[in-house]
Amino acid sequence: MTTAEIRQRPVGELLRQWREQRRLSQLELSNQAEVSTRHLSFLETGRSTPSRDMVLHLADRLDVPLRERNTLLVAAGYAPVYTRTSLDAPELAQVKLAIRQILTGHDPYPAVVVDRYWNLLDGNSSGAVLTAGAAPHLMGPATNVLKLALHPDGMAPRIVNLGEWRAHLLGQLRRQLDAVADPELIALYQELKSYPCDDEEPDIELMPGPNNLIVPLRIRHGDQVLSFFSTIATFGTPLDVTVAELVIESFFPADELTRAVMTSL
């Protein structure tokens, strides 16, 4: 969203949008924020102007991400309070060191770190097992891991359970959109949906099959099929937009064959 677009939308309208997105009534939010329903109504309709502290207070109760909290502040006429530091800046040296320790410490299993838009920022050497054979145009400096996974020129032809894994990734992105209705993420979701897939896409989260504990990534490696599950990690109590949006995904072997193959590599 551009600065001009932000200024065109009053802060009250943005607050109401976030409240509705969180499926809260004015009464529910007023109780959580400990403000009167009447005052909240006045803020949303523009009859009252929120203070800087009130904007941050309501944003906290609505669990608004840091990037969007800055947007709310600007719309209300205040300066942003959350920095957006480049990952290469000296201030984030210790953050980068922590990321590198996590990634290298996770070898011999794949691990990656991505930003809000699922662009690859770093990864360990074991990730090459997953991306082997992907087209160069998907592996440039601006690699998007979701496009890489589901594009027919990427990992998709090697993923044995493509329909299942595709449903999992798209579901994950939908939940992110429910939390943050970001136009760039919406465009990414629409692009991923347009990629061809001949496999059935089961709604495994609603109707899991027997003995299904997790959704595995099952991918061909030579004449073998490797199986992984993953965990997601974020930084606790971030006060910088960049740090808040970093996500580390670590893959673990889901069976003994995968563990043995990855260890041997």
Rank of each mutant, 00 (worst) to 15 (best):
S230G: 14
L97D: 14
Q17V: 06
S126E: 03
W165Q: 08
E164W: 13
N70P: 11
L213V: 14
A134F: 02
T237N: 15
A149G: 03
G222Y: 12
N161I: 03
V112A: 01
H168R: 00
N144E: 05
G12L: 00
A4T: 15
P80I: 13
L173F: 01
P202S: 00
V35P: 09
R61T: 06
T45S: 09
L73R: 00
R84T: 07
R116F: 07
I99L: 10
L173K: 05
T37F: 15
A75S: 11
E200G: 03
N161Q: 06
I248M: 08
G123W: 12
V113C: 04
V95K: 00
T143M: 06
P141N: 15
D255E: 08
T2P: 00
L14Y: 05
S36V: 03
R259W: 05
L169Y: 09
S30T: 02
S250P: 14
P208T: 11
S51Y: 05
L257W: 03
Q190E: 12
K147G: 14
R218A: 12
L43R: 01
A156T: 12
G105L: 14
I186N: 09
S51V: 11
V215R: 04
A254W: 03
L206T: 15
A134K: 00
E184M: 08
L265S: 08
L27F: 05
N212G: 08
L138A: 10
E44K: 00
R9N: 10
A254E: 11
S194L: 08
N212E: 14
L146T: 00
G154M: 08
L97I: 12
N119W: 04
T263S: 13
R100P: 13
L185T: 04
Y78D: 07
G222K: 15
A79L: 09
T258N: 01
H57L: 06
A254M: 02
A254S: 10
N31P: 05
D88I: 12
S125D: 12
F42R: 06
